[in-house]
């Protein structure tokens, strides 16, 4: 059995860190940028854009912020392929889940139409929402 102190190669990725000190400034700058993007998000919300545009802007800014956290703070900019592989699988299943969920929005099987509900003439098995 291997020992923890066997002197083997240590944790990889961003963790081979003779140069950790050189990243300190980057961490502070990313933190400051995240604050600025948060202020931008709230400021855009205060001008009351149309809902679709507001949603688009807010989600784009949130995605930029999330990418900064993942790339710099979580060191995903420089990781091993096993981690990228597992995240790729996760992304696939995440997108599949959201897509399948969204597809059900077009599903009207088992639901009554407005006319049928209002006249009380829903077909057998229909369900009122």
């Amino acid at each position: 059995m291997q020992s923890d102190h066997a002197g083997h190669a240590h944790q990889g990725g961003h963790s081979d860190h003779g140069d950790v000190g050189s990243h300190l400034r980057l961490y502070w700058m990313i933190g400051a940028a995240l604050y600025v993007f948060t202020i931008i998000t709230v400021a855009v919300n205060q001008v009351h854009l149309a809902i679709p545009l507001a949603i688009t802007v807010a989600l784009i800014v949130a995605t930029i912020k999330g990418s900064m956290v993942a790339t710099v703070f979580m060191h995903l900019g420089n990781e091993k392929r096993w981690i990228y592989g597992s995240l790729l699988l996760t992304a696939f299943f995440f997108v599949a889940m959201i897509t399948i969920t969204t597809l059900t929005l077009r599903d009207t099987i088992g639901t009554a139409t407005v006319h049928e509900v209002s006249t009380g003439a829903a077909h057998p098995g229909a369900v009122e929402r």
């Binding site: 059995m1 002197g7 190669a9 944790q11 091993k80 981690i83 995240l87």
Partner: peptide, 22 residues
């Protein structure tokens, strides 16, 4: 000792804890 808590596994190139948390 629990293996690969510090040193990296030869197959994954990672310590077990790191792959585990991801």
């Amino acid at each position: 000792n629990i293996p690969y808590t510090v040193e990296t596994r030869p197959d994954t190139g990672l310590a077990n804890g790191k792959l585990g948390i991801w």
